[in-house]
Design a protein around this nucleic acid. Structure first.
Lengths: 293, 293
DNA sequence: AAACCAGGTTCCATTAAATGAAACTCTGGA
DNA sequence: TCCAGAGTTTCATTTAATGGAACCTGGTTT
């Protein structure tokens, strides 16, 4: 009776996973349960003891024990003998490397972001939308040129961030509807838009301008301007944004960066769709070998 | 009869996963099989079709189908309707973010690497050992200050890279033994050490010097110097390295950087073990909030 | 048109694996 | 010595995974 997955098998095409939810609890059999445990370990930002997880009451003792064993064997979790704690495993870092390079727009966008950040001397983010949340894929910090992989993989709310709103604004209606239902609409600051209708108004403006602003909606003193990276269909695939603080810049300052942002976003779009040039040969077009030592 | 996991239950302590193998095929039940599929998708560096995986003969049709469904539902895989292909899912990027911050030495080492790279004006890598392989956790490229998250998560051979050898040299014997058995000893270049005994000799020298060199052992024209990051027990937890090419520098040039590397490695070690200062309070000592937009 | 085919998807009786209550083991206090 | 909390193992029961075969579906061949 399970095998949930689809919401509307009669709607026509697709039907696959889509929408939001996905990992909202009730399982895909054993594998789903194991990944629930993995997630439960990961959401804590520190190593957790067996009993920490057990006391959540989500799993019976023996079941939890075996799932942890399995995940540890598989390298998805790391077990520390000293402290008797579990933490996310480094195998995830390997797998994520592949996801970043294969699935995301990040490898293609990277050089453009480098250039934009160098040109503007500002902090630039690249983000995409994942199940209604903003997933940061890359960051360039020009002030202090400190890279943080710690930023790739970070998630944030879509309804109150510059990048998030830029992407929502250019989502096809069915996807937008699903995404809006996934928003928490918590009021982070007095400026936060806290309803779907208020947000829809804002999205209309963004759609008209092709630019989005975060007016201290997520954090006091933090503002940002963002532009969507759009597919040929018009749909948003991602967003790039420049973030600053109200101590350093005004929203007016930021809006002068709009054209640069939009140009870069368009360049990335073009790089993502190598039509016209080559008739979509099998050969890949933006990849890079790279070597480490 | 399964529940493999340990190799030597009578050896004494620990017994948990350790050694190598882990994901070398034959399962941890259903979860293991699902992760095998995930891995099979990830190792290809491009999206794969259902039939690509099927033709490997590793799974019966229906089984593979359902595992892919489950993994896709869970966000571990991404399914592209257009092309009918699977690729690693972005949920992995989220999970890896947690792993990087929680499990690895990377967040602690980050500021030291920043400083070292800025000071030397060279490319610096941070790596750790994962199941006998070198796992790169971070990179700083000073020449062109381009960050690549693509480097975090990349893996390489331990026996013929500077960082890898630096870590092997300071592994306790049981772990070293396991790690050596996991090495492929393929001959990348004429300089590559292709046997455990040759490598053990080299490791003795590294142990004496506290420094390790890659003398074009992995790639022609690429050389590197590395220093281990050691735990209080002396065991290697990771390594930092400076990489350059024979066109730009000689091994002698690199060896002048040794003291700087070792100092930085020691600083990182110290930062990882905040004894003396505080008597290991529950409070965390090196973490960082950080905000995105 | 009809037959064919490849790539996917679904069925269902069989089989294997996950389950979880309870019993057990350890370790470190009272 | 006894107890308690934390973690581990057992085993009869339940549940889910399995995979061979049938079945779609859209595109090609005869």
């Amino acid at each position: 009776m399970n095998r949930t997955a689809t919401g509307m098998d009669d709607a026509g095409h697709t039907t696959r996973v889509d929408g939001m939810s996905a990992n909202t609890g009730h399982s895909d059999g054993t594998v789903g349960k194991a990944l629930d445990v993995l997630e439960a370990v990961a959401v804590q930002d520190r190593p957790v003891r067996f009993s920490d997880l057990l006391s959540s009451g989500r799993w019976p003792k023996a079941t939890l024990y075996r799932l942890l064993q399995t995940l540890t064997n598989q390298g998805m979790l790391h077990y520390d003998d000293e402290t008797g704690t579990y933490a996310p495993g480094l195998r995830l870092v390997q797998l994520a490397h592949r996801a970043w390079n294969t699935t995301s727009i990040a490898p293609v966008a990277r050089p453009y972001i480098d250039q934009l950040s160098a040109h503007l001397g500002k902090t630039v983010h690249l983000a995409t939308l994942d199940h209604g949340q903003v997933l940061y894929l890359d960051k360039r910090n020009a002030a202090k040129p400190i890279r943080m992989f710690s930023d790739a993989g970070k998630v944030g709310p879509a309804y109150c961030t510059g990048g998030g709103k830029a992407m929502l604004a250019f989502l096809p209606e069915p996807a937008l509807d699903a995404a809006l239902r996934a928003q928490a609409f918590a009021s982070y600051t007095p400026q936060t838009l806290t309803s779907a209708t208020a947000l829809r108004d804002e999205l209309a403006h963004i759609r008209a301008a092709g630019l989005s602003f975060d007016r201290e909606e997520h954090e006091p003193g933090i503002i940002c301007i963002a532009a969507p990276i759009r597919a040929a269909t018009g749909e948003a695939l991602g967003a790039i944004s420049v973030t600053t603080s109200t101590l350093q810049n005004t929203l007016e300052d930021l809006s002068t960066l709009g054209p640069d942002l939009q140009d870069t976003a368009r360049d990335i779009s073009a790089a993502l769709h190598p039509w016209s040039a080559e008739p979509r040969k099998g050969a890949d077009h933006g990849r890079h070998p790279d070597k480490c030592h």
